[in-house]
């Protein structure tokens, strides 16, 4: 199925969870926050949250800023 990750299309296996997506992208265990379709998915729910076709996923982190 196709999702949008940080604004770009991405093919992932059906019912991939947020936790699996983070692992695939290399962010497992890193300090990031995840939003799916503009709703926060709390860290405690990453393993239970399956993604669906067309989901818009954002993975963000903290960078330098004023």
């Amino acid at each position: 199925m196709q999702i949008t990750l940080n604004g770009r299309p991405l093919d992932v296996a059906a019912s991939t969870t947020v936790a699996q997506l983070l692992t695939q992208a290399g962010y497992a265990g890193r300090r990031v926050a995840v939003e799916v379709n503009q709703e926060i998915v709390p860290r405690s729910r990453h393993e239970q949250h399956p993604l669906a076709e067309g989901d818009r996923v954002e993975i963000v982190h903290a960078i330098g800023g004023g």
């Binding site: 890193r30 993975i59 963000v60 903290a62 330098g64």
Partner: peptide
């Protein structure tokens, strides 16, 4: 200290 919140660069800065 202030920080900004931005998208990670998928495939670039994971490590």
């Amino acid at each position: 200290v202030t920080v900004a919140i931005r998208r990670v660069n998928i495939g670039q800065d994971a490590g």
